[in-house]
Design a protein around this nucleic acid. Structure first.
Lengths: 118, 118
DNA sequence: TTAATACTGAACTATATGGTTCTGTATTTA
DNA sequence: TAAATACAGAACCATATAGTTCAGTATTAA
């Protein structure tokens, strides 16, 4: 289980690290969209938007298809499963650290109340 | 709920987009570590490791403290909550798209079986 | 007190990101 | 057929990342 050898996580987390791209995902959740309509919505040049879409595509989060002169973008069949799993597994890890900390604090308090109040 | 205006998600997802940094988090889950020990573990120069730790620190995932000449790194009280929430919310979004797709496929099949087999 | 350790910071390299403009091409629409 | 639309791609810019080396400082150990 060598989680840190996955380059798909590299690509998807990198894709999600930009607010515009997270916004594109939100938007595509409401319905498919052309590059132009996304560029309008996010006030960006067509070329700029195309690059964002490419980053999302490389990560498998978005798929596109060109029909005629319009390239339509939609959410991919990615599902964010591996990402959710990584995050959940490591949330537990962070929690464990705090539980350990709580124990230490608990012990300190117990020791404290054991001591005679002089 | 303008999710795409959060720069904390930018920082944390960017921090998580590198395999070495995800590995550092794994390692710190097993116990606190100095920059040197992490550099050894990940076969990297001290300076290179310090940069990775700084990225994790900026994202709040790791905290460090220098005692004497040793800087000790530990997991921060971050908890990956916002990240988990974003991912979970959007997993549902991807699922909805597929449910919609399933419906379409279902309809296609029904239409198919409705048609006389000629 | 000298030597080793652990870091800090500057400087450099190569590559990626996030954006632009400008030019060209294919497809529609009028 | 001519004009408008939608994109593709090259080139450029500034900044960030991922790494290095090299020189310095502060601690600790011998």
């Amino acid at each position: 289980m060598v989680l840190y050898l996955s380059s798909t996580l590299d690509l998807s987390f990198a894709a999600l690290s930009d607010a515009t791209r997270r916004g594109i995902i939100d938007q595509l959740g409401r319905g498919d969209a052309s590059i132009t309509s996304l560029a309008d919505k996010f006030q960006m040049t067509l070329t700029g938007m195309k690059k964002h879409v490419q980053v999302l595509e490389r990560a498998g989060l978005v798929v596109t298809q060109k029909v005629g002169r319009v390239r339509t973008c939609k959410l991919g069949n990615h599902g964010l499963k591996a990402e959710a799993e990584w995050i959940e597994a490591h949330r537990r890890l962070f929690e464990i650290r705090f539980e350990a900390l709580d124990e230490i604090i608990g012990e300190m308090k117990r020791e404290d109340s054991d001591e005679p109040e002089n």
